[in-house]
Design a protein around this nucleic acid. Structure first.
Lengths: 338, 338
DNA sequence: TTTTTGATAGAATACGTATTCTGAGCGAGA
DNA sequence: TCTCGCTCAGAATACGTATTCTATCAAAAA
């Protein structure tokens, strides 16, 4: 453990510890000769500041906290989170911050993690992902004035800084794309009713239909969950209709893949018999047959904005705006091709 | 910021700060009456220790560091890493540790991250993933006696603690499975020559052939990279042979999917015309058509062992053994079914 | 020459906790 | 009665850095 402290550097340079600190911090009020002496010693023996002492003294840890409340199992297989974590690491790193990641499985542990990261001052700020509307942490964080930023949406107050995908726009993008391809009878397979992301994409779907002057057909809209099985079931039901849709907007890639399987099983060609588009542009979209069109969510942008806003808050710069909406991007593949 | 310090708790309880500390640490040498007084005050006003001060004082941060050297982009789309990170978070959390994740993109930044995590004493120990044989960090870490554990393999010295998949066993598992299905002419599509994981799986393949008394056919073995394109190219080449293989072991799921695509394009039915098996049991295995058999890597076990060994090292308990080999598991799906 | 100003650097202190040191009080043994 | 030993709690200190406070010295102003 040959790690030197400022005190030892000082002794070797025949100056005081305070002077060493000043040299390191670039304080101009130090004589050039002494500065050189100190720098020479540091160069020779090496010096790395003790982050623990620095953070105790300066009240800054140089670490951001990321809390997701998902089970590690979900976390492990959700490409969204891995991409998000990776991107946040990247952008935080560029600004000289580290990232501390914690996962809150149960609601019970959520509180514990919150205590442990925040009140112990282990991190300078927090990024919360997909908060719930009934999130008891938000008011407390606001009250304490602790820097944090949300990825997702939170309705009860607009006092929080947040970044979210333009899910309405995404739904519209997918639907308009299908309309451009000539489709007139377009179904929507949604996820759980009441979830922002599903409702928003549904709104986008409705708007696109409306603007194109197409009729809305309630029998073409189904709600459920985010599973492949749900997509499979609903696609089958849609294909059983007297007048089945010629295209399907599925709220999630997995759901879309379920629909794809149903179509293939019944001998319905994709996209000729039925076009299918999903959301999120999950990595496996390009490996299914036919490759799946999808509306990509700009995870990196999401991460970049969240990180920058949080660091601005931490460093007492007033961020430009509270709510950020990140547009999505259409990725055309064979499943909606001509 | 209504966070109280021990000093303030002490004042409110009319005792000394030392006594508060003793009560909190469960020191038995404190009178029951005082203890109760202090606990009552804490209960009323709340108290959470300052992690920064604790770590400065106790030389322990309660944080593990995880360093992966991959670009954030690769990181984002590699399910292995997200699963690994998730699992480490989980197990570290169970032991009361946090996780600080950093990614070293360039070789240049690797050094910087190493400095920043380790010498600044920001973490108590380090988990290194997929070290290279020429890894300049290893000797230094060993020399400094800094606690660390490897996920992967390192040859130059056996002084390091490491956890690795049984890749030889995995290669054997896949090959034996195909042999059991009656295949006699089995190809191997590998990744980059010289990479441990590829060489080991190849060894397993060779051993399984040998033990089954099957001839080794060099023309059935191809090396390249981990891409889908490589699998596609090599599968085509194999199918062009005068006597094509009836089964393929692909070193990675992506490579296997490339092979799958080649087979489908040429009208070769899978598995009847050619069986295919991959490695890693990537989430999308179950969504391709036909679903892809794969040898699953026990990421959670890997993470669990690595975390436990590291924490043992940190807390001065001698771990049982230096090298841990985690067995893999066969996941049968339609691509190798009868 | 005396006072003031400015530049510089060392001494001292604070951050909050854990632990060692010290001393007070008391019962037991001589 | 006096000392020894023991229990317990407060005082003091250390962890390593950043910063404020203070002292020194020289040069400039009076």
């Amino acid at each position: 453990m040959p790690e030197l402290t400022q005190e030892q550097i000082a002794k070797l340079s025949r100056v005081s510890q305070a002077t060493v600190s000043r040299v390191l911090r670039g304080d101009p009020r130090v004589n050039e000769e002494l500065r050189q002496r100190v720098l020479a010693v540091i160069k020779k023996h090496g010096y790395v500041p003790d982050a623990r002492a620095q953070s105790l003294r300066s009240q800054r840890t140089g670490t951001l906290g990321l809390v997701v409340h998902r089970s590690p199992k979900q976390l492990a297989r959700d490409p969204f989170f891995s991409a998000l974590i990776a991107a946040i690491i990247e952008f935080a790193g560029e600004e000289g911050y580290h990232l501390c990641v914690d996962a809150a499985r149960a609601l019970q542990s959520r509180r514990a993690i919150y205590e442990d990261l925040l009140r112990t001052r282990r991190v300078d700020g927090l990024i919360l992902v997909e908060p719930q509307t009934q999130d008891e942490r938000m008011p407390r964080l606001l009250e304490e004035g602790f820097p944090f930023v949300l990825i997702g949406r939170y309705e009860p107050t607009d006092a929080v800084y947040s970044v979210d995908n333009d899910n309405v726009g995404a739904g519209r993008l997918a639907t308009e794309h299908l309309i451009r391809q000539g489709h007139r009878r377009i179904a929507y397979i949604g996820g759980p009713r009441g979830l922002f992301v599903c409702e928003d994409r549904y709104q986008g779907y409705r708007k696109a239909l409306e603007e194109a002057g197409l009729d809305y057909a309630p029998e073409l809209v189904g709600w459920g969950d985010f599973s492949e099985a749900h997509g499979y079931r609903w696609a089958n039901r849609l294909l059983d209709l007297p007048q089945p849709p010629t295209a399907v907007v599925a709220v999630d890639d997995l759901v879309a893949i379920g629909a794809l399987r149903a179509a293939k099983e019944r001998g319905v060609a994709v996209p000729q018999g039925m076009a299918i588009i999903g959301f999120n542009d999950t990595p496996f979209c390009q490996y299914v047959d036919p490759p799946l069109s999808s509306v990509a969510v700009e995870i990196r942008t999401l991460a970049q904005i969240a990180t920058r806003v949080l660091i601005d808050l931490i460093e007492d710069r007033q961020p430009a705006q509270r709510r950020h909406i990140v547009p999505c991007r259409l990725v055309e593949r064979a499943s909606t091709g001509r």
